[in-house]
């Protein structure tokens, strides 16, 4: 974007669209475990994810752009997570929040999926057990950056 001498704001339509898209990333209300509490905490006054335009947690996957996999994914929950991801409309992004979602964490056992990236494509991983809310805010920042750079997220980016 640039300001011309005659005070016209010139911009490419793509840039404007991406700017609008990146500042309204709506997450899906899907809490799984401990990390879900920290996911709720980012909406609290101390962290205030509304500054990034992502405070609108949507309960329906049809209205959500971002899936935050907040916690350990049990074998029984994995088909549900996959189905919710499939129900979200493109373009869509995924944050794998915490050690358990990213790699299984300390639960290297029969019950936990060893990394949610074995079932859905992940765009940003957040380390921590659980990550601090600042960590999640930074992850949303990274998603915004990906959108501004023309990223399309998830399966579309890989196709």
């Amino acid at each position: 974007m640039e300001m011309s001498p005659g005070h016209f704001l010139l911009a490419r339509l793509d840039d404007v669209a991406r700017w609008a898209q990146s500042t309204s990333v709506w997450p899906l209300t899907m809490g799984l475990a401990c990390c879900a509490i920290e996911m709720m905490t980012v909406t609290s006054p101390e962290y205030d994810i509304a500054r990034l335009g992502s405070e609108v947690f949507r309960s329906s996957p049809r209205q959500a752009d971002l899936m935050i996999v907040s916690g350990r994914v049990a074998q029984k929950m994995a088909p549900v997570v996959k189905r919710l991801y499939d129900q979200m409309a493109d373009p869509k992004w995924v944050i794998s929040m915490g050690a358990c979602a990213s790699s299984g964490g300390i639960f290297d056992n029969y019950a936990i999926v060893q990394g949610v990236d074995t079932i859905i494509p992940v765009d940003v991983y957040v380390p921590g057990c659980p990550p601090s809310p600042d960590g999640l805010l930074y992850a949303v920042n990274l998603i915004q950056q990906q959108i501004r750079e023309g990223g399309r997220g998830g399966i579309l980016a890989r196709s």
């Binding site: 929950m77 300390i106 019950a111």
Partner: peptide, 29 residues
């Protein structure tokens, strides 16, 4: 059962002091 983590089983494979780490992840509030 949608969050079954096998915490009790995992605790059996850890030292007494390490088991506390997984046990604290039960009631995460």
């Amino acid at each position: 059962g949608y969050l079954h983590t096998g915490i009790e089983k995992t605790a059996e494979n850890l030292f007494w002091s390490q088991a506390q780490t997984v046990i604290e992840r039960m009631d995460y509030l």
